[in-house]
Amino acid sequence: MPKRVPAIPDDILRREVGHLADDVLLLPVQVTLLTGLSVGQLKERLRTRPPQPPHPEPRERPREALWYSLGEVRRFRAHRIERAAMNAELAKLGFRAGFAMWLNNGTAQSDPWPFALVGPHKRPVDAWATIRGEVVMGRGDRISWLTLPEYLDARQKAALAQQRAEDRVKAIGTAKARAKRSLTGTDFSARARKRARP
Rank of each mutant, 00 (worst) to 15 (best):
P2M: 03
V5D: 12
P6R: 05
P6G: 01
P6D: 00
A7S: 15
P9Q: 12
D10R: 06
I12Q: 04
R14I: 01
A21F: 10
L26H: 01
P28T: 11
P28E: 03
Q30N: 06
Q30V: 03
L33S: 07
T35P: 00
L37E: 02
S38A: 07
S38M: 08
V39S: 11
Q41R: 13
L42I: 01
L42M: 00
K43E: 15
E44W: 07
E44R: 13
E44M: 06
E44Q: 14
R45W: 04
R45Y: 12
L46I: 07
T48D: 04
T48N: 10
P50K: 08
P51S: 08
Q52T: 02
P54E: 07
P58E: 07
R61W: 12
P62G: 01
R63Q: 15
A65N: 14
A65S: 15
L66R: 14
L66F: 09
W67G: 12
W67N: 13
S69A: 00
S69I: 04
L70I: 08
E72Y: 06
V73C: 03
R74Q: 05
F76S: 01
F76Q: 01
A78I: 12
A78T: 14
R80C: 13
I81C: 02
E82I: 06
R83I: 11
R83T: 15
A84L: 05
A85E: 15
M86Y: 03
N87G: 06
A88D: 14
A88W: 04
E89Y: 04
L90H: 02
A91R: 14
K92R: 15
L93G: 00
F95Y: 10
R96C: 10
G98S: 07
F99P: 06
M101I: 06
N105P: 02
T107V: 10
Q109F: 11
D111E: 14
P112R: 02
W113S: 05
P114W: 01
F115Y: 08
G119D: 00
K122F: 09
V125Q: 04
W128C: 11
A129G: 00
R132T: 10
G133E: 08
G133H: 03
V135I: 13
V135L: 02
R139Q: 09
G140D: 15
S144I: 01
T147A: 01
T147Q: 01
L148N: 02
L148V: 03
P149K: 03
E150I: 05
Y151K: 04
Y151G: 00
L152G: 03
L152R: 10
A154G: 02
R155K: 09
K157H: 12
A158I: 02
L160R: 14
Q163W: 05
R164M: 10
A165N: 09
A165V: 05
D167N: 10
D167V: 01
R168M: 13
R168I: 08
A171Y: 00
I172L: 14
K176D: 02
R178D: 09
R178Q: 10
A179V: 09
K180Y: 12
R181T: 03
S182H: 12
S182M: 13
S182Q: 10
S189M: 15
A190L: 09
R191Y: 09
A192P: 00
K194G: 11
R195N: 13
A196Y: 10
A196W: 13
